[in-house]
Design a protein around this nucleic acid. Structure first.
Lengths: 154, 154
DNA sequence: TTGTTTCACGAAATAAATTCGAGGGATTGG
DNA sequence: CCAATCCCTCGAATTTATTTCGTGAAACAA
C-alpha cells in the first residue's frame, strides 16, 4: 500500500476533478492510458480511492440556509452516542456529522430551506431526542472546501 | 432552471456515485443514453452540477487525526474576516472552512498527521495570526457525510 | 387547425476504456 | 557476474461507451 509520486498525482487530480477521462489523467501524470488505468484500478481495489461524488448547487435544490448545530448529550455512554449518530445521519437535512471531543459531543452540518425550517428541525429532530441535553445553532454565512486531502506520505 | 423528477434522480444518483457511466445512468432513470446525456450536459451548463470529486482514504495519506478548530476573531471587520478566510483556505491541512454566526466566527476542519502536528498547526497557523483572538480545538473521533444534498424542489 | 417548442429516440460516427502479449529495467539469489 | 524473477510499462487490438444528428411524437399557443 505504498504510494509513489504518480499515485499521489493521480489522487490529487481525481480529487480536484473526478470526471477526468483516463486518457487525460494518463497524459497529466505522464503514463500510457493502459498503465494509468492499472494504477487507478489498483488504488480502487486497495481502498485508497473510495469513489466519487458529484457536487450540486445547493440553491438549485432550494437550500437557502445552512447551519452547524453543536450538540451536547446528557450522558456519554456508547449507546447514546451511537443512537444519536445513527439518528442524525438518517436525517435528509444532514450533510455531515462530526463526533468530537470537547465541550460539545457533536457538530452537525445541516442544509435547510430557511429559518423556519431550521427551527423546526432543531425542535423536532434534536431537542426532542432523549439523549440530547443541549444544542447550539450557528448559521453558516459561507462555506468552502479545500481542494484535496493533504498527503503526508508523498 | 426547473428540475423535474428525472433531473432530480440524475442529481441524486451522481451525488452517490459520480462514476456511473452515462449508459448506466440512463438506464437507472429510464431514458435513452442520448437523452440522458443531454440532460446531464444541461445541468452542467446551468451550474446545477458543479463537478465531481474523488474520495480518498485519509489514513492512506498519513492523516491520523482530524480536528475542528473554532476560531474567534478580535474584530469582525470585513477585512479581518476575509484575511482569515483566505489564509485558512490556503493551508494544506484545511479540509473545509465554515464562516458562522455565533460565539465563534469560524469552524475549521483540519486533517493532520498526529497530535504534534495539530499543536504545531494551531500555534503556527492560527494563534499567531493577528486577527485571531482565541481558538478552541476539538478532536474528531468520527466523521461521516450524508449521501446527498437534500432537495426541496422535487 | 397550424405553427412552434420541447423532448425523447435510435443509428451512425467518434472516442474512450479495457484487455493482453511483450519488453525493459531493477532487484534478488546463486 | 549471470540468470531468474518481478514489477511496471507500453502499444495494438478489441470491446464498450460517448456524442452527434436527423426524425418524430407530444404539449402548447395563437
Amino acid at each position: 500500500m505504498n504510494l509513489d509520486r504518480i499515485d499521489c498525482d493521480i489522487l490529487t487530480l481525481l480529487q480536484k476533478d473526478a470526471r477526468l477521462s483516463n486518457k487525460e489523467l494518463a497524459a497529466a501524470v505522464g503514463l500510457a492510458p493502459s498503465s494509468c488505468l492499472a494504477r487507478v484500478q489498483r488504488l480502487r481495489s486497495e481502498g485508497v480511492l473510495r469513489g466519487a461524488h458529484a457536487e450540486v448547487d445547493p440553491q438549485a435544490l432550494g437550500v437557502g440556509l445552512q447551519a452547524l448545530i453543536a450538540v451536547q448529550l446528557r450522558q456519554h455512554s456508547r449507546a447514546q452516542v451511537k443512537a444519536f449518530w445513527k439518528h442524525a445521519l438518517g436525517l435528509p437535512e444532514v450533510l455531515s456529522v462530526f463526533h468530537v471531543a470537547g465541550t460539545h459531543d457533536f457538530q452537525v452540518h445541516v442544509a435547510v430551506r430557511d429559518a423556519h425550517h431550521l427551527r423546526d428541525l432543531a425542535l423536532d429532530a434534536f431537542t426532542t431526542r432523549s439523549e440530547v441535553a443541549h444544542i447550539q445553532t450557528s448559521l453558516i454565512f459561507e462555506w468552502a472546501k479545500g481542494q484535496v486531502m493533504p498527503n503526508y506520505r508523498g
